[in-house]
Design a protein around this nucleic acid. Structure first.
Lengths: 247, 247
DNA sequence: CCCATTAATTGGTCCTACCAATCTGCCGCG
DNA sequence: CGCGGCAGATTGGTAGGACCAATTAATGGG
């Protein structure tokens, strides 16, 4: 239990002071010596705590001046946004459609062949196959890369990560994935055809259709779940009622 | 210049040792005392360096045992992607156009009025005005929000952040922003008109035009800079030549 | 009133000593 | 011969004090 080092305890205390509003961003913390006395520890401990806080980006130590509280930086506090599975899919539909349109213009034969292979893998994969999911990801990733725009690739990659980082979204996706094997292959093939034809508009439409079907599947699953949930609620209520009725 | 603290220097040296493969993930670093002697510094400096590395998640210090190299954690190494200003702007053009199209469908009057006010602020702002930049950001942010999709807002917000987080991009944007005041207001007004008319296609086009002009400005600035750079090079060469000619 | 010099403040580094957790190896017991 | 436990060595953890360097505040003279 108490294998925590002293400086970590002090660091937490200092953070608490900051969070309490006593030392707002931009303000200066008390001198090391003062904090050391206040916490009843040596100056080394305070110093180490401040170094740890600086490494995490909460404060900035200026030699001879003091330790200053920094603005909470968005990157350090990478809080995940509150996004539903539908929103995420809609965003992917729009953005990946544009990526596909861009890709259609300039994709080369090597990339097209690679896409073909990914579809093959998905076609031959069994249910709940990790390889299929990886191929799916690689398929979308390859199209994003073919757009020739690193920013677009970055966004699409980020959105894909959200798919697994957001727990509620993850659940919905998993239940959908297992039911759409054949449809998915057909849609991917349609996207590939449009890319082969170097037809941006067709690629955009094909990609949007792919996600539109996905959203529909998700709606079905969600409806199904809502029904089950309702049934469970009713069942529980019934049991409770029966129990109280037999008192 | 050398305002770097000793422990940071030591931390870099230790990181270099790790990266060199001498201490692969899972292995133990040499004892503090040994490292201190090796680097010719006190034990405290080594200790502080290790604390900083631990705070960043590169090593794990175990009391009485030693400091162990951790696996490079994917999430902790949130390296910024390598994206050019043009790519970023192209991505914003595509994505924000779709956001505007969605927003056109369902934006309410209150939001429209707010957009109007942001344009007013931009119109009245002087050059190099922080208020104008903030209004600009809020304008785009409000449209993203009006799309009613948190994932889209998240992406647009992320891309805007990249604008300031990526140094080379930041430079380009800053030099462009100071030259486009009037054009920017007119374009924003056009976007607002399309949103008022609840015309998705028009909103999409207006937003794309806005960014298209921005890209053109950036191209101009980049060209200008390239010319200046070339001139500097020539000037330097000339000086060097003259100097060597007078020897 | 302004500026430069000075003094006080504050972080930076080192050393030395000692404590606590951990690891290692030896020794005795079974 | 093998295993477990004890003791010493190893290693990180903390303290206190001393001194240096950068910064800031105070003070004095122009």
């Amino acid at each position: 239990m108490s294998d925590e080092r002293l400086y970590q305890l002090i660091a937490r205390k200092i953070e608490a002071l900051i969070d309490s509003g006593k030392y707002p961003p931009g303000s200066r913390l008390p001198p090391e010596r003062e904090l050391a006395e206040q916490f009843g520890v040596s100056r080394v401990a305070v110093r180490e705590a401040q170094i740890a806080l600086q490494a995490v980006g909460r404060i900035k130590i200026k030699t001879g001046s003091g330790a200053y509280v920094l603005e909470p930086h968005a990157e350090s506090t990478n809080k995940l946004p509150n996004i539903s599975a539908f929103e995420l899919t809609e965003a992917r539909a729009l953005f990946e459609a544009e990526a596909a349109a861009l890709a259609a213009i300039q994709i080369d034969d090597a990339a097209l062949d690679q896409l073909e292979r990914y579809i093959e893998i998905m076609k031959e994969a069994g249910p709940d196959d990790k390889a299929a999911e990886l191929a799916d990801r690689n398929f979308h990733r390859a199209i994003a890369t073919a757009s020739g725009n690193a920013a677009i690739s970055y966004v699409i990659e980020t959105l894909w990560s959200l798919r697994t980082d957001l727990e509620p979204v993850k659940a919905v996706y998993e239940s959908v994935c297992s039911t759409d094997a054949s449809a998915r292959v057909a849609e991917h093939a349609a996207i590939l055809d449009a890319l082969r034809a170097h037809d941006p508009a067709a690629a955009r439409v094909a990609m949007r259709k792919h996600f539109a079907r996905l959203i529909n599947s998700m709606l079905d699953v969600t409806e199904q779940r809502a029904l089950e949930e309702l049934r469970n609620q009713v069942s529980k209520s019934r049991q409770r009622y029966l129990k109280s009725a037999t008192l």
